[in-house]
Amino acid sequence: MPARRKSRPIFFAVFVSAVCVRAADLRGIWMADKNVDASLERAHVIVDPPDGKIPYKSEAIAKQKQNFENHATADPETRCFQPGVPRAAYVPSPFQIFQNDRAVYMVYQDVHAYRIVYLDRAEHNEGLGYAMGDSRGHWEGDTLVADVTSFSDATWLDAAGDYHSDELHVIERYTRTGPDTMTYEATIEDPKVFSRPWTIRLPLRLQRGVQIVEDECEEGPNARRHHVPLFRRAP
């Protein structure tokens, strides 16, 4: 029963974090630098492998090239799909983190997507085909570690056509590094598309004096997707 064996260390981590670790406060409105979403490779956020390239399997490269050529219309973001994971963390749009004992809540401005990272249960719901995946989290010291599975293949990893299959598995790490900064790290694994797991790391910045506003797609043949800009709060 490989699935069961796999969940044991997660159970242990949940137990340890419940007993020993006080949660760090990640609350606030966060946003990545604007250029990351355009291309993970060109933004130099891939820290592993050391060459900074996405380790595509040879048979998976053709689809990436095709996506890149058609990105203006083929990018699921342009069709108002939920952004997926890890992309939701670095689309050019803010997200707000809320927390309680039960979960950490990632509330994205982008197409009003959200994720609930449950802290109180380790077992994933398998095979759901979620755009945003099924998230289970635990604390390792001051780092929130989220294990995300059960994806659909309907989302991309960036606007350059980098993609994944429904076998995507992401491990995210959120570590607050200062009053206004957080490091976001994601290890991306997908045996159908990549020859090995790979990792991105990038800074998120706290956005002060703004609020998350509604980002609702407009319909019709002339609809054009655009990200709702940062919305300043009334002074």
């Binding site: 219309t73 342009t78 069709r79 108002c80 719901n125 755009a131 797609c217 319909e219 019709g220 997707r225």
Partner: peptide
């Protein structure tokens, strides 16, 4: 659970054409 509406094939046409 996740509620996919726009992601559904038939609704997509309402949004992007």
């Amino acid at each position: 659970i996740e509620y996919d509406c726009i992601e559904g094939e038939r609704s997509e046409i309402h949004y992007a054409g």
